[in-house]
């Protein structure tokens, strides 16, 4: 079973890497700084390492999906990220795609179960 667990960990890691972007974009209709996002996402059941999130935020910013602004009024200067106009559009499209993937996969997984039940 230890073997299966190892495979599972690897596959989960890949799966998470792909979906984390959706999670991040979903939380940024209001400006957030990096660590507040880490906390927020983990509270909602999407754990993400700061070492993964921070480079991801910069990459999304570079791609033009996020805008950023330094807030130097607080005790600690923080960089806030917010969805850009393109980012919003992309996120909306992404959600539609995601839902269709989820429903297709659900369909596939459940049908697989039905067939097995039918065979035996």
């Amino acid at each position: 079973m230890a073997d299966a667990k190892e495979h599972l960990d690897k596959l989960l890691q890949e799966l998470r890497r792909g979906t984390i972007t959706i999670g991040v974009l979903s939380q940024l209709s209001e400006a957030q700084y990096g660590y507040s996002l880490v906390t927020m996402l983990s509270e909602k059941g999407i754990p993400v390492e700061p070492g993964t999130l921070y480079p991801l935020l910069r990459r999304l910013e570079k791609q033009g999906l996020l805008d950023s602004q330094w807030d130097t009024n607080e005790a600690r200067p923080r960089k806030y990220y917010l969805l850009s106009k393109t980012g919003k559009e992309v996120f909306d499209l992404l959600v539609v795609e995601w839902k269709s993937i989820v429903s297709s996969l659900n369909h596939v997984i459940e049908n697989e179960g039905d067939e097995k039940n039918g065979d035996h």
Binding site: Y33, G34, Y35, P50, Y54, R58, W70, R76, P77, R78, K79
Partner: peptide, 17 residues
């Protein structure tokens, strides 16, 4: 070009943690 910005952000992160 990215050093200063990333350094500031990382410092913020570590202090937050």
């Amino acid at each position: 070009a990215q050093r200063k910005d990333i350094a500031d952000e990382l410092r913020g992160l570590i202090e937050d943690m």
